[in-house]
Design a protein around this nucleic acid. Structure first.
Lengths: 300, 300
DNA sequence: TACATGTGTTGCGTGTTGCGCAACATTTTT
DNA sequence: AAAAATGTTGCGCAACACGCAACACATGTA
């Protein structure tokens, strides 16, 4: 059933005359007539009764009419839903994020985004850099936020910003008084809470240790940033992280960041990635743009 | 929304690959691809996510899919109803009949017709010849059964059969013993129950009375055949009617028919009529054919 | 690493199809 | 009897959808 055919049938039933529809559609009566006969042929049943003046639907025509009206109503509902999706008033975006991005994301990106597009839902998986890139490659997540992404032909970098690892300490503590930039040897003396090498950050720390032949004083090793944050905030020691990971605490004044005199740490970098070759849904595109503008991790 | 587009979209969602659909439909992948993009353009929203291997419906695609499935189910129901109509298993025919045809119609035509096409419903209006022809002209009824139809360019005669008016009497009564054919003068002496001139039959009787300058002995004048039938069956007198009107009673032996020696009465004729120029619904056509074959009024 | 095979997409030439114009058959109105 | 209205059919053209080929890209394999 062609849409053009059924819609003209509707109008003909409504107006009760072929010619009336023809003039209102600015088309030839023959066109209308042909469409009607085509529809009747397609359905194999007579739909209109040709009467003295104009036409009138037969019983089959009435049935079709009823069907089309119901269908039109459903179509209207469907297009309304499409409008919602188009206007980003609905949709779902799945994210895979390194743990360090969670607070930045939730604090700086999501609130304003949800305000603009309230009906969009998120799926968020947090994991190591490797896990995130796995999710991206397997289309489990639309977007990935990772620290020190290893270049991968399957992953396309939508945005990247330098985020040097810094020394984080409690402001009043002894370690906060170190002359900055802090050297690797000074750092090695401080009790520290470090991420396990499973994460990008932890891996970078291990790498630096290997390069410089030093071993930091690990008071705590964890795969959870919460543990490390608390460790530092309580003044039990220091850690090495990009500043944006503890942006809240820095703003509060409960943690301060000091530069490290280690070029390798300066090469730290955050990336927003997606699978290369994938055409992202609109909602994901919008969020990506929004994130790289609003998240602290992507400010130079 | 073109049907071709949506149906290919359905298949693509089902098979998960454009090329798979292309081979199964024996068409080029480009055709399928173009149809999909056309549908997406028409709806203004992305429906399919192009993935590593094949395609997968987006959220909008899922919505459309759901919509189309529901629509397909309704279409199936609709075509089933059409099948029913086509197969004459449903439909409605409106009839306008002279009262004399009712028993013939109900006894001889409808039972066998309803047996063949059980779901067809009837609307039946009974009235005078004029009223019936009015109904036909105004498309109130598909078919009309009338006695002595006046030729009318708006009405087309589908069938007509001579049905002379006869003398009807109770078999054992005095009037049944009259030498036949019965003359007009003999008839004039008998107490009779006659139809009012509003009907075709009553009009013909009046006409004959005028021509021959006689006046029948009206014991009863009525516009209802039931009254006349009962009058004759009870042996209270005679009437003048086509034999088929009291076919049941003749078969029972409760009424007998005698020929009348009046040429004008012999010109009595029944007609099955429809509006000229009207294309009748299938059900009406079928019924017309069935009626002229099964009704006693149309047997020579 | 290079190649073969899989995916979907785009440019171009061609065949089908739906459309407008005109004439027609019928019926209603003047 | 003519005029105006209805729906229908024949014919020619133009737009559109399709097939073919080449392409872009990703994936698996020698």
């Amino acid at each position: 059933m062609d849409d053009k055919l059924t819609s003209t049938f509707l109008r003909v039933c409504q107006d009760g005359s072929i010619r009336a529809v023809a003039v209102s559609l600015q088309q030839e009566p023959s066109t209308i007539s042909r469409r009607l006969t085509a529809l009747e042929t397609e359905l194999g049943i007579q739909l209109l009764e040709r009467r003295k003046k104009g036409v009138k639907p037969t019983e089959a025509g009435e049935l079709l009419l009823h069907h089309l009206r119901g269908q039109a109503a459903e179509l209207e509902a469907l297009t309304a839903e499409f409008d919602a999706l188009r206007g980003m008033r609905r949709g779902s975006v799945s994210l895979a994020v390194g743990e360090g991005f969670i607070s930045d994301l939730i604090k700086n990106a999501l609130p304003s985004f949800k305000k603009a597009y309230p009906e969009i839902t998120f799926t968020m998986r947090s994991g190591s850099t490797e896990a995130v890139m796995q999710d991206i490659q397997n289309d489990v997540a639309h977007l990935g936020f990772v620290f020190n992404a290893t270049p991968d032909r399957h992953c396309k970098v939508l945005a990247h910003t330098a985020q040097p690892l810094q020394l984080l300490a409690k402001p009043a503590s002894d370690w906060a008084k170190t002359t900055s930039p802090v050297s690797i040897s000074s750092l090695a003396l401080m009790p520290s809470a470090l991420l396990l090498p499973g994460s990008g950050i932890g891996a970078m720390v291990s790498e630096v240790e290997t390069i410089y032949g030093v071993r930091l004083r690990r008071a705590v090793e964890a795969n959870s940033l919460a543990a490390i944050r608390n460790f530092v905030r309580e003044g039990l020691g220091v850690t090495v992280l990009p500043a944006f990971v503890v942006a809240q605490e820095i703003a509060d004044g409960t943690i301060m960041a000091l530069p490290l005199d280690v070029p390798e740490f300066a090469r730290g970098e955050v990336s927003l990635i997606a699978r290369s070759g994938r055409r992202l849904p609109e909602a994901a595109m919008k969020l990506a743009n929004h994130a790289m503008r609003s998240m602290q991790a992507f400010q130079a």
